[in-house]
Design a protein around this nucleic acid. Structure first.
Lengths: 333, 333
DNA sequence: CTGAAAGCGCTAACAA
DNA sequence: TTGTTAGCGCTTTCAG
């Protein structure tokens, strides 16, 4: 069996021209039913598969979606990637993946490479490096693009992400119902919308419930930030009743550092996370958190992208999807 | 600025033919220095970039590498993906990613899709599903392929992975030096080489050190298996001194179940993992484990693949890379 | 309803 | 050293 059988061979086998064969296989042009059957049978028999390269050259469309994430190794992004891969695959797109390694310059370069590869559209989870503190509007290419997970700078594209305010609201409310009267926030700074929105929502909900809030610790979404938060707490004369961490990773770092400092969770202090990672259920104690609707985010993002690929020039849309509260050991006494 | 500037335009601007422009840019054919400069300048000025589609159609090479993993969401694979992405990118390849969702049928299908996309080569981390217990030799395509991480069935391709026997040896030796005299194995079954090799190495090293080994629990590489192992231990009249778990995930499941059962690590029993995930350092207790040389595996795999892409028809090679022992809380009293 | 032919952008024979 | 041209495999006018 020849490794590549061309349309010409199928046409010859079916006794028609390439043009007819093409039409028969495409099925959207007027071709006699009889030839359609014959051509399809021959194609099947010979194991014909269209050459996507030739088709792309001719049609200007690759059926490829590019996705750029800050770091594939981060479980949140890898799960998002997983979900996006499934959805785009279901829509007939293949996924070209690029990792910006949390470097805005590299991110821009990767976007350009993907555009050069003629992807039909791109999904971007923008990076925010500590180095490049200012937000760069990441649109160096004229390919349909939707931002996913978070936004840097003023939105200049469609956006799909979690409803941060709602999630934080759920957590604060839950902690209040657990009897917490003082709550500290340990999370990311204002460089991207997630950090900003979670912090603002925390403030707003704390106020609504009349909760006292010691000064927060705000930096990144990483373990390190959690450790810093724990150290701040260990230095405080009076510990807060609870800590709202801006991410599961922060909570992990926080809890393990508190433990080293002799403060245990949930006995001495309640802690919540944000993201709903698998590890949250394996950690000790299991972590109360808010679960990101990853599948829904992936689904909606691909929908947005498809409509842009199909030529929509509607105003930028922003889609916030509700997360779900998952109560666990870190807030259960 | 036009979004796509073709070679023809560059040639016109430089006052030469497309052929000359192509050669000048490629640089490997005889062209006068003066025209090279002129063409390059014009290309630069116009922002010309070769169209990879056209080039691929002409050359039959896409500079694309496909990679199929059982599940992107698994931290080990996402880190491997990350590493592979970097290495292949450094060699001028873009990465097309596919997730087989641990389904051999889907895996075969994805391999075919990638082959249809005309990738120059493929990296496959074969899946092993509980459903399809028998190993299928995964070579439905005639594209250079190297197996990475593990092998299913008789090797029919180059392979790069960790040196399982060495890793297990390090762990057993370490536990012996901690004073353990009875060790139980909780790991994966024999469906793939990793499960088989780790188990065999455990047996061999236990014998060398004269260690007593109660019956093992063997199933998958997942949390569930660890939980099963813990339950077996909780039922035993006499607990072993230590448990060698076949993966970090198994160890996590095992430790948390033991904790629920009132057995604590490392006080009552020592536990080791395998993989060296980030979580191993965040877990309580921090986990003694063997760190997979992920970067080295990625590097070597891409090297193997490149040599196959370049036409090498040497016999199949198998490259086992040494892991490193990382001692932590789960074996430190 | 079907065929002939153009052409997507590029590279490599082959000529000059 | 440079230009002309064929052709990679496909889709799509334009004729018939």
């Amino acid at each position: 069996m020849r490794s590549t059988v061309t349309l010409l061979e199928v046409a010859a086998a079916a006794g028609v021209s390439v043009a007819t064969a093409s039409r028969a296989l495409a099925g959207k042009d007027r071709v006699s039913a009889a030839t359609v059957v014959r051509v399809k049978a021959e194609a099947q028999r010979l194991g014909y598969r269209v050459d996507p390269i030739a088709r792309a050259l001719r049609e200007g469309s690759t059926r490829l979606i590019g996705m750029v994430v800050p770091v594939i190794g981060n479980p949140f992004y890898s799960r998002l990637l997983d979900a996006v891969e499934q959805v785009s695959h279901a829509h007939g797109f293949e996924l070209l993946v690029a990792d910006s390694h949390a470097d805005p310059t590299e991110e821009a370069r990767r976007l350009r490479v993907l555009a050069g590869r003629k992807v039909d559209g791109m999904l971007l989870a923008p990076t925010v490096s500590a180095a490049a503190r200012e937000s760069t509007v990441p649109m160096p290419v004229d390919v349909p693009l939707v931002q996913i997970d978070r936004v840097v700078g003023p939105a200049a594209a469609d956006f799909v992400g979690v409803d941060n305010a709602l999630g934080i609201g759920m957590l604060v409310e839950h902690l209040v119902s657990c009897g917490a009267r003082t709550m500290m926030y340990v999370g990311a700074d204002d460089v991207n919308n997630s950090g900003r929105e979670r912090w603002q929502a925390f403030g707003a909900h704390a106020e609504i419930h009349g909760v006292t809030t010691p000064p927060p610790v705000r930096d990144g979404f990483d373990v390190k930030t959690g450790v810093a938060g724990a150290e701040a707490i260990l230095r405080m004369p009076e510990r807060p009743d609870a800590v709202v961490a801006g991410s599961d990773l922060i909570a992990f770092g926080l809890i393990s550092r508190l433990r080293e400092g002799g403060v245990s969770v949930p006995e001495n202090i309640l802690v919540t996370g944000f993201d709903g990672t698998d590890m949250a259920q394996l950690f000790y104690p299991t972590l109360t958190t808010v679960v990101q609707p990853i599948e829904a985010i992936a689904y909606e993002a691909v929908q947005f992208l498809r409509s842009r690929i199909d030529g929509s020039d509607a105003p930028w849309r922003s889609n916030r999807i509700a997360p779900a509260l998952r109560v666990a050991g870190s807030t259960t006494r």
